[in-house]
Design a protein around this nucleic acid. Sequence first.
DNA 1: CGGGCCATTGAAGTATGTCAAAGTTTGTGG
DNA 2: CCACAAACTTTGACATACTTCAATGGCCCG
Lengths: 263, 263
Amino acid sequence: MDEPNANAVQSARLPWPSAGRAALPTGTPLPPSACKSCGVRHFCLGREVDELAGQLLDRIGIARKRVHKGQPLYHEGEPFSFLYAVYIGTLKSSLSTADGAEHVLTFKMPGDMLGFDGIANGRYATTATALEDTEACAIPYERLMRGCAESVALQQRLTQLMASQMVRDCRSAKLISARHAEHRVAGFLLQHSGWMEERGYSAREFELRMSRADIGSYLGTSLETVSRSLSLFAREGFIKVRSRRVEILQVEGLREASSARCH
Amino acid sequence: MDEPNANAVQSARLPWPSAGRAALPTGTPLPPSACKSCGVRHFCLGREVDELAGQLLDRIGIARKRVHKGQPLYHEGEPFSFLYAVYIGTLKSSLSTADGAEHVLTFKMPGDMLGFDGIANGRYATTATALEDTEACAIPYERLMRGCAESVALQQRLTQLMASQMVRDCRSAKLISARHAEHRVAGFLLQHSGWMEERGYSAREFELRMSRADIGSYLGTSLETVSRSLSLFAREGFIKVRSRRVEILQVEGLREASSARCH
DNA sequence: CGGGCCATTGAAGTATGTCAAAGTTTGTGG
DNA sequence: CCACAAACTTTGACATACTTCAATGGCCCG
């Protein structure tokens, strides 16, 4: 492991020793107080934490890591050391199936945290792959835990973030279990639109970063069915599609399509 | 919620005041050290925690709550105060859908913890309903947090439990996204068999506590398809089914059926 | 400019949802 | 403890939705 970051990152206060290998992440160390003014802190650890927790975030030694499109941020089975927070870009998290294929579990956008699954057994249970050139903050877990031991606020924020992810996973599970593929695709568009809006982008018009195959895998249907559903919604005038560019024309139409119990 | 965070350091050993309403659960209080010798502690908070954490568990004021078959343990939208740990029995957790129906998200068995989703917004995001007469330990969250502030071991155990649930949710999501209902039903049987085995019951023969409709909702298919798949597996000699009683005769058959890419 | 990846669309056979009815099990009250 | 009602399960039939295979065309990157 390379270690030259150590001096730069650790601030004035009692620096923690970087115990063992990989205690500090590789990549560009964050400048002090970076979390406090981060554009996506609202979704991340840095939200509304008190003075102490803010200082701890600086001492933890978070580093920004770049991942090129198609490259993994971490891989299923790999030893777990870091949680990640997406700073810019998009990733998919996936699980490999018995027959060697890949199953997409979820998509991660700026502000989302990922890697929690690694806490359970000390190894990542999933693979995270960049869907476009992406930057993520690597948060060394051991050191984060030491910070949590010193700050109740930080600890509670972490717990709350994990719980928030669980809530979103619940919604996702509901979406995926819709009976008809058409409902799932409509639901996916609405979900994505909501994610964009939460992050300050347009809810009406956006570029999907994932392939039809990824969407199909996520929704438990074939890529052809995804494509056909999109074409159908376009024909009905609910959306406009051109490859990955989507424009929503009638949210209500999609909403009905996502839950219609019709015939 | 009620009381501004009474900042840690409540000079150890004495019982915490029960701040505000509902700080302590109703139900039968656990005797001291109950967690330490609990039959399902391996899955729960009480596993391998140190002496201090053990004492904290006693001070937190956990109470055993009984829920009759069909009754809710908590309900979507209800204010969150307690995490629960299943002591005996089975529950389903569900989300209500736009059209007033119910979507089953997961099943909870002895040792499983539930209610984490309430941490995110201070309200439960799901409903938990007993599938048979059930007993669960109600863990007051505010007080648990105070315990976590005093014991890093307890805090880390909680974090690990949440992470474990996330890992299981991932597997569940993969199962639910299988293309063919038959794969999903086979996967469900294997999953259930595994859950039984983990808990020391027979992996080969068990009684399902949930209805075909619940299974269908969970798997995103109709109850008729669940029934037909089970009948099919029985005809192929993989299992024996009589109403909710299931005996597994050929695990390998099921395993193939759960992931077969055949025609 | 060409090659590879991705998206769209068609056709055909299969899987699944829905409706319907009959058979079981479970729970309740006499 | 029995009888009856309600809830649940199984099975059939049919229309529809979906997967798969296949072919075509568009788009992006080097």
